[in-house]
């Protein structure tokens, strides 16, 4: 699959200390790609390098096939995490200015400004000046400017940080709506959000890439099932162990939780194995609480970082 972002040993050092260290990863075209890492992992610095704000110390990258020194600015958009807007200008003025820089004529820039403001629930705030924005409004405005026009690639650094649940939901809906039209690289501390939104993710820790895989692979959705039982006993574990798609069963000390490792042949769907396991448990007389496919991204994240 064609990669819209390709980095090769991307490194940024400040005072000799690497903040991003030899980062090599690819973002496939059309993906909603999650970028995860604890504070200080180098996510924002990586975004800044990919947007051309910060020069790499070593290494290289291409964005939409072009080097970082010659980015295709008319084909990409971004939400920088900590950039501020012109305090004295209204939101409409700023968006029209940005639209004009993107090559839109005045009428289209005006129309786009109104469209993106409405999309983030700021339709009534066009005349509000930058210095009058609350944190949430500023964040929504930042998201709005990233959705001006029809960029092929959108980089969003912490797009829902500090937003109330309703506005965070709106932003997630906007990101989902980009699926298929644009490639979106999104960083977030909200792991459930990444799990929900993204197809693929990369995990960074102390400037280094520690994992890059599909969300299904990272969460083991096709490798593992967690089962909560209503009552402990050896019967359920024995019933599962005999199944052809079960590679192993591990019980918690109290016997109420089972971690079932699946064994799937290439092309086999996990749903078949899960149905088989649930059927065997019911047949053994076990009472079921919950059945969860895979572990959470949070668990995987904590394992890796």
């Amino acid at each position: 699959m064609e990669a819209v972002i390709r980095t090769n040993g991307l490194t940024k050092r400040y005072n000799g200390r690497p903040v991003v260290d030899g980062l090599t990863f690819e973002v496939p075209r059309g993906a909603i790609f999650g970028f995860l890492g604890p504070n200080g992992a180098g996510k924002t610095t990586t975004f800044a390098m990919l947007c051309g704000f910060v020069r790499p110390s070593v290494g290289s990258a291409t964005v939409l096939g072009r080097p970082l020194t010659d980015l295709p600015r008319d084909r990409m958009a971004a939400l920088p995490q900590d950039a501020r807007f012109h305090p004295e200008r209204t939101l409409s003025d700023s968006l029209i200015f940005m639209g004009r820089l993107q090559g839109m004529d005045a009428a289209r820039a005006q129309g786009e400004a109104a469209r993106v403001l409405a999309a983030v629930d700021l339709a009534e705030a066009g005349k509000v000046r930058g210095k009058e924005l609350s944190h949430g409004m500023a964040k929504r405005f930042g998201v709005a400017q990233a959705f001006l026009g029809t960029p092929e690639l959108v980089l969003l650094d912490e797009p829902t940080e500090g937003l109330d649940p309703r506005n965070a939901h709106t932003v997630r809906q906007m990101i989902r709506a980009m699926s298929g039209r644009s490639t979106v690289l999104v960083s977030s501390h909200n792991l459930a959000e990444i799990e929900d939104l993204c197809d693929t993710a990369a995990i960074l820790d102390r400037g280094r890439l520690v994992a890059q895989a599909s969300i299904a692979e990272l969460t083991g959705r096709n490798q593992q099932v967690l089962i909560q039982l209503g009552a402990a006993g050896s019967g359920p574990q024995a019933a599962l162990a005999t199944l052809p798609h079960v590679a192993g069963v591990e019980a918690s000390p109290d016997g109420l939780r089972l971690r079932v490792t699946l064994r799937l042949a290439p092309g086999e769907r996990a749903e078949v194995a899960i149905t088989e396991a649930v059927g065997a448990l019911i047949a053994s007389g076990a009472s079921l609480g919950t059945v969860v496919r895979g572990h959470s991204l949070e668990e995987r994240f904590l394992e890796l970082t």
Binding site: C51, M76, A83, R84, F85, Q102
Partner: peptide, 11 residues
């Protein structure tokens, strides 16, 4: 204040 970043994304 990094407001230049909004310009440098486009120019």
């Amino acid at each position: 204040n990094r407001s230049a970043r909004f310009v440098l994304l486009r120019s």
